[in-house]
């Protein structure tokens, strides 16, 4: 396990252990996203170093959330750079209509597994979940739009996530970790 040294004058030891734990979480996240070991390690290391740098000048409540957001950003940027930018228009990017050819087959399988879960979901729960995932609406806003109390909205999103994750884990167990990374990304 690698250790991280805080730059500057202050270097309390308790941070090293903390950062190692965060590094492990971010690597797990990146591996699940990319399904590529070396790339996941690379992203995790970059994300933790950027997080260390960031929290030296800013007040951070959750270091885990910070490092994971940076990792999501890095993964996103990575795929934007790996695609020819002049062929992108907004709708195409969002709909991800042209993933890298290598990943199409594997991506399709994962996509299908997730699609089945979404299709089987009660219509109200699906609507609630899409409002969060696609529009980034708050639970209060979703509740107002669909005449639900915010606690019910929270429960719908949580339940939807449990089901979606279970389907994705099942798909991942069947598909080996591949050297070809995820093609594009909406995070």
């Amino acid at each position: 396990m690698m250790t991280y040294q805080r730059r500057g004058r202050v270097a309390p030891n308790r941070h090293n252990q903390e950062w190692s734990g965060i590094h492990a979480v971010v690597r797990r996240y990146a591996l699940s996203r990319l399904r590529h070991k070396e790339m996941a390690e690379d992203i995790a290391q970059q994300a933790v170093l950027k997080a260390i740098e960031y929290q030296q000048d800013n007040i951070v409540i959750s270091l885990h959330a910070l490092a994971l957001r940076i990792a999501a950003n890095l993964i996103h940027l990575h795929y934007r750079q790996s695609r020819p930018s002049d062929s992108l228009d907004a709708a195409e990017d969002l709909a991800c209509t042209e993933p890298l050819p290598d990943r199409v087959a594997e991506g399709r399988e994962e996509f299908k597994a997730i699609q089945v879960v979404l299709a089987r979901m009660p219509a109200l729960r699906r609507d609630v979940f899409l409002r969060r995932r696609l529009d980034g609406q708050s639970c209060d806003d979703i509740g107002r739009a669909l005449n639900l109390n915010p606690k019910a909205v929270e429960k719908h999103i949580t339940r939807a996530l449990v089901d979606l994750k279970a389907a994705r884990v099942k798909w991942q167990e069947d598909a080996p970790v591949s050297p070809v990374p995820e093609a594009c990304d909406h995070a």
């Binding site: 991800c96 996509f111 997730i114 995932r133 996530l161 994705r168 909406h186």
Partner: peptide, 8 residues
């Protein structure tokens, strides 16, 4: 899973 392109 939540962030994945497939889910999006």
């Amino acid at each position: 899973c939540y962030d994945s392109a497939s889910l999006g």
